[in-house]
């Protein structure tokens, strides 16, 4: 590029109020991504389904509090004791009072139990996701930014965690872990809180490595950018660089990871319920309802059908949402 000396001689007046070139710069990357996301039908549908689940999860405990929904009430009159507690009537005893029928053995309104179950299932999944994402993001940033031996140690740690037989450990340590939490938290070993906390922690502690790896890769490219040098030159501490300079540039992959890991944890909760780990009855979760329905597989199909359907819908919607977000945020698809 040749540079015209004469241009230097002329002092071009600088307009002190130069306005940002809104027209040229146009929309920000975020706005563009949102636009792409909105144009995708499937993503939008799954987004609204997910919103609906979240609303259900939030509203159910309120309904329980005010007494509209009674997920723990017993009503033996609705059951056929001779058949082992199967509800009277077709489709699990569906009636105007009990739109989805009642639960076998207890006669509790099934809609109440299912909606309350969504609350607990989502709480478990979200909490475990938060644990995994927080650990993964923090270690990923440190690993990618520091490099050297810190990176090597975290890398080995990731390999170790990934090669660990986690389901086995989850089962093996279950009794000890729950007992421990029962000591420091309210409730005893058969209550929701100690069991839930144990499940959340163990799921989360095994979920972070993939996130850490992904974040590390992103940080490797971010740290080469000059604004990181500028931050160093202004005297920014490491912590400030991690969380004020780098982290805000990571929200897109973090969001995508969040939506992709959550459905995995929803299914994991269900699978673990079969194995007897997690929140036990009478507190409902989609997982423990489904687990119990196996006992009535021959006699009460709707007892199995509704929770399975709810579970399938949320897992699929969340996955579609995550895929849609990823495509919208990263149109080049460089993964």
């Amino acid at each position: 590029m040749s540079f015209q000396e004469s241009q230097l001689e002329v002092s071009e007046p600088i307009d002190p109020k130069i306005t940002p070139t809104g027209l040229i710069a146009g929309q920000s990357p975020t706005q563009l991504a949102l636009g792409r996301f909105r144009r995708d039908r499937l993503s939008m549908i799954s987004f609204w389904i997910v919103v609906f689940y979240f609303l259900a999860g939030i509203v159910s405990p309120i309904l329980v509090k005010v007494g509209v929904s009674k997920p723990l009430a017993n009503d033996q009159k609705l059951l056929n004791i001779d058949l082992g507690g199967v509800p009277n009537g077709a489709w699990g005893g569906t009636s105007w009072h009990h739109l989805l029928g009642v639960e076998p053995r207890t006669g509790t309104d099934f809609l109440s139990r299912l909606s309350y179950g969504i609350t607990f299932s989502l709480t478990i999944a979200i909490s475990a996701t938060i644990v995994a994402v927080v650990i993964g993001v923090v270690l990923g940033i440190i690993s990618g930014f520091s490099g050297g031996w810190v990176d090597a140690i975290i890398g080995r740690f990731i390999d170790m965690t990934l090669s660990f037989p986690q389901t086995l450990m989850l089962l093996a340590l279950s009794a000890t872990g729950v007992a421990l939490f029962a000591k420091i938290l309210p409730g005893d070993t058969s209550d929701a809180i100690p069991n839930g906390v144990y499940e959340v922690l163990v799921l989360g502690l095994f979920g972070w490595p993939s996130i850490a790896r992904l974040i590390r890769g992103q940080v490797l490219s971010i740290r080469e950018r000059e604004f990181i040098d500028a931050a160093r030159l202004s005297g920014a501490s490491r912590r400030r660089i991690y969380f004020k300079e780098i982290l805000p540039n990571l929200w897109a992959p973090v969001l995508v990871q969040f939506t992709l890991i959550m459905p995995a944890y929803v299914s994991a909760e269900a699978a673990l319920s079969f194995l007897g780990v997690g929140i036990p009855v009478p507190t409902p979760t989609l997982g423990n309802i489904l687990g119990d329905s196996v006992n009535f597989s021959g006699s009460d199909f709707s007892y199995f059908f509704y929770p399975a359907l709810l579970l399938a819908i949320i897992v699929v919607s969340f996955n579609l949402l995550g895929d849609g977000l990823r495509d919208a945020l990263d149109p080049k698809g460089d993964r």
Partner: peptide, 13 residues
């Protein structure tokens, strides 16, 4: 220091 590339020397966020 003033950096070469104004596209990468300012934190976009």
């Amino acid at each position: 220091m003033i950096f070469q590339d104004p596209a990468t020397s300012l934190n976009p966020r």
